[in-house]
Write a protein that binds this DNA or RNA. Structure first.
Length: 491
RNA sequence: CGGGGUGUAGCGUAGCCCGGUUAGCGCACUAGACUGGGGGUCUAGAGGUCGCGGGUUCAAAUCCCGCCACUCCGACCA
């Protein structure tokens, strides 16, 4: 239908890349692997931030900020942590430039070599736990519930806008607790905050569960995650929450005097979501005409497009449009009257469809005569005439319905593309025929997991934490399995 | 990081194999007119270090070498 975007069917990757650029979300920068997040894209991220931030505050967390740079030595303190991140760290070795000898540019001043090199944070556990050491002495200092909004750098070989970039924005929560039980509860609480955010705001249903040993965060005892299903049948990890045990407390010597007077290491968690959620949002809902945004995170809820011929008509249409505008605005919604004269209505329609604005109101002379307005919803592209006097009531209802419909569509999609497989041959067949999640029994060993990955490219996305356990036999080895786990090919 | 592909105006591209006019076209842009309920029409115009750097040649977008970026596949990873 649209010639402005490559269709999803023709080339899903290209569709995604084009959409991200054409909807004004982001573009590649002059720096390899790094993106520029454009104003419209950033305003969506801000909506996500604000919803999440509120949820973090409601669960007792405070924001703080820790340095971008981490002394190299900190990394060696937690063995598996350094092993996990070593290969993708940017390192600062010098602190000064000088004019080059030929006078044509600048070069690194060799005299400015740092005594201890600094790592650009790929995540902040080490610097934060090093700081917590000074903040925590007594059980009275606990729990310590901190979040930080920050940029981080992971030197990726293969990058894609939002999904995997060398630098990205995220939030990382880092908490310290008196007991294992409390830290485990925190881990699951924040996992559920993420699940709720994904489902209620982004309108993306997710499976939450625990990662297998080989997929877990370097330095964690347990890693939990939420996994969403994209329209191409690939899974996307949308957030993680880690139970750190006492690993970092021990590595950084963070101890407290307990209620009984004993000196104990604290228990930790960390959890994060990133601008990758922007990619999830695009791939979960959008179509061949452009972006589709759930109203709860759309920067602009409603756009009003005037239809007119003469200046006189424009004046009369504007008058009514502005009235509608202020009515909708007073409902707490964001609304824009696009009175630009340099584009025709049809052009504007396509433009706002590309940008995913949930509701469009077209208003022309005919409407003025009849007291109506043409209301079009982005998700279904369905148009309806409403009496102008009812807009104030109908628009919020419509937005609500769009939010629900998007979630339902995404849920239906996931349901249709979640299959069970009972043997390995069936597993492979299902993966190819209905790309998506496959629930299958697994014997719990690393070897079997590896073999499945090698032969099918599918990985264990998570081991569901809730829901009913169902005993069975591993689809590969036939050994006992306590429950089905979630497999998929993933981003 | 290995293998393939691509890089020409803001975007999309032709030309490159086989070197030789002023690098062509569509969209967008500027001016004006007519237009206006799903990306309008006409007229006139502006816009190019042909990714960057070397080399070969009388002559390079075109051939050779190096680099950079993007992209796909693999490895690695969130």
């Amino acid at each position: 239908m649209s010639e402005f975007l490559t269709s999803r069917k023709k080339d899903y990757s290209l569709w995604y890349n084009e959409l991200v650029k054409k909807a004004g979300l982001a573009e590649n920068s002059a720096v390899r692997g790094c993106m520029v997040i454009k104003p419209y894209g950033f305003s969506i991220w801000e909506k996500m931030q604000s919803a999440l931030d509120t949820m973090f505050k409601e669960t007792g967390h405070s924001n703080a900020y820790f340095p971008l740079f981490i002394p190299k030595s900190y990394f060696s303190k937690e063995a598996s942590h350094v092993e996990g991140f070593a290969k993708e760290c940017a390192v600062v070795t010098h602190y000064r430039l000088r004019n080059s000898a030929d006078g044509k540019g600048v070069e690194v001043d060799p005299d400015s070599k740092l005594e201890e090199e600094l790592i650009v944070r790929p995540t902040s556990e080490t610097i934060i736990w090093n700081t917590y050491k000074n903040w925590i002495q007594s059980y009275r200092d606990l729990p310590l519930l901190i979040n930080q909004w920050a940029n981080i750098v992971r030197w990726e070989m293969r990058t894609r806008l939002f999904l995997r970039t060398a630098e990205f924005l995220w939030q990382e929560g880092h908490t310290a607790h008196e007991t294992e039980k409390e830290a485990r509860e925190e881990t699951l609480k924040m996992l559920d905050v993420y699940r709720k955010f994904a489902e209620e705001y982004l309108a993306i249903p997710v499976y939450s569960g625990i990662k297998s040993e080989s997929e877990k965060f370097a330095g964690a005892v347990d890693t939990y995650c939420i996994e969403g299903l994209m329209q191409d049948g690939k899974a996307l990890q949308m957030g993680t929450s880690h139970f750190l045990g006492q690993n970092f407390a021990k590595a950084f010597d963070v101890k407290f005097s307990s209620r009984t007077g004993a000196l104990e290491h604290v228990w930790g968690t960390s959890w994060g979501v990133s601008t990758r959620l922007m990619g999830a949002l695009v791939m979960a809902h959008s179509d061949d005409d452009g972006l589709i945004l759930p109203p709860k995170i759309a920067p602009l809820h409603v756009v009003i497009v005037p239809i007119y011929k003469s200046d006189d008509e424009f004046t009369r249409v504007s008058e009514v449009a502005l009235k509608i505008l202020s009515e909708i605005k007073s409902l707490g919604l964001t609304v824009k009257f696009d009175d630009r004269k340099d584009h025709k209505p049809g052009w504007k329609f396509s433009e706002y469809e590309m940008k995913g604005v949930p509701v469009r109101i077209a208003l022309g002379p005919r409407d003025l005569q009849n007291g109506t307005a043409e209301v079009s919803r982005r998700d279904t592209k369905e148009k309806k005439l409403y009496a102008i006097s009812t807009l104030e009531k109908e628009i919020p209802k419509l937005l609500d319905e769009i939010q629900k419909n998007l979630f339902k569509k995404a849920l239906d999609w996931r349901t249709q593309n979640t299959c069970q497989a009972n043997d390995f041959a069936q597993f492979k067949k299902v993966l190819d025929e209905t790309p998506g999640f496959v629930m299958a029994h697994w014997d719990g060993t690393k070897e079997t997991e590896e073999r499945i990955k090698d032969e099918t490219k599918a990985t264990i996305r998570c081991i569901p934490v809730d829901g009913s356990a169902e005993k069975g036999k591993c689809m590969v080895t036939g050994k006992d399995s306590a429950r089905r786990v979630v497999f998929a090919r993933a981003y």
